[in-house]
Amino acid sequence: MVAEYRKLVTTRMWWVLLLALAAYLAFIGGALAFSIVVAAENEQGDLMLHGVDAAASIYGLTNAIGYVFPLVIGSLAMTTEFRHQTITQSLLVEPRRGVFLGAKLLATLPLGLLYGVVATAAVVLASAPVLAGLGDGAFLTEPDIIEVLLLSVVVTALWAMIGVAFGSVLTNQVAAIVVILAVTQFVEPIARVALGAFDALDGVAKFLPGAAADGLIGASLLGSMDGGSAELLPRWAALLVMLAYAGILAAIGRFTTLRRDIG
């Protein structure tokens, strides 16, 4: 555990990604808050959000668009081992491969929480003044909003864990990042909207990982704005679905990658 944690924080990648995440979310958060406020003032767009909903959706950005970062850092924790063949040394000190994978999954949680805190703080710092100054208010003391903020942090840590599990399945670093980008930026958003368009499949969309994360937070930008499936899982179920993604991917990794000969 400690070893796995040290692995994460002894390279530069973790804070490079963290800074990128913070900058990215601050920018989007500020821009989105601004556009919602302006749109509301001009009385356009019936789909636009008001009041607490607007605040919740914006604060939920950490998950809605920021989740690719914890996913990537999580996958890197695993794929780096294979890219630089440090997996050899790792398995020399811990030959029980299940224990090795478990330690990696858990060690990512504190870093994931840190990502969550920084990301959420970045969104709030950029958007709250806009909402408060020009819009209906920042609602930072509203219990619902505080829940959204705290759960955003938790969800970010879970994403990091899913990233580790995914990296154990797809150990090629470049391939893993490409797949993560493709799925998060393209496949899942489209799938959510597409599935939402068919009544028969509407129920499936909420089990997609991003939708489950929205369910856990209880706020969905995609769900509320794009006219897609607005239906989300209840929080407990959403948490289970996210953990299931991590668990199933990790199990696949354990019985494929980590069963093979190393080196």
Partner: peptide, 10 residues
């Protein structure tokens, strides 16, 4: 084992 199995950034 191998002289190359270190993370170059560490």
């Amino acid at each position: 084992l191998e002289a190359s199995s270190f993370h170059p950034g560490r």
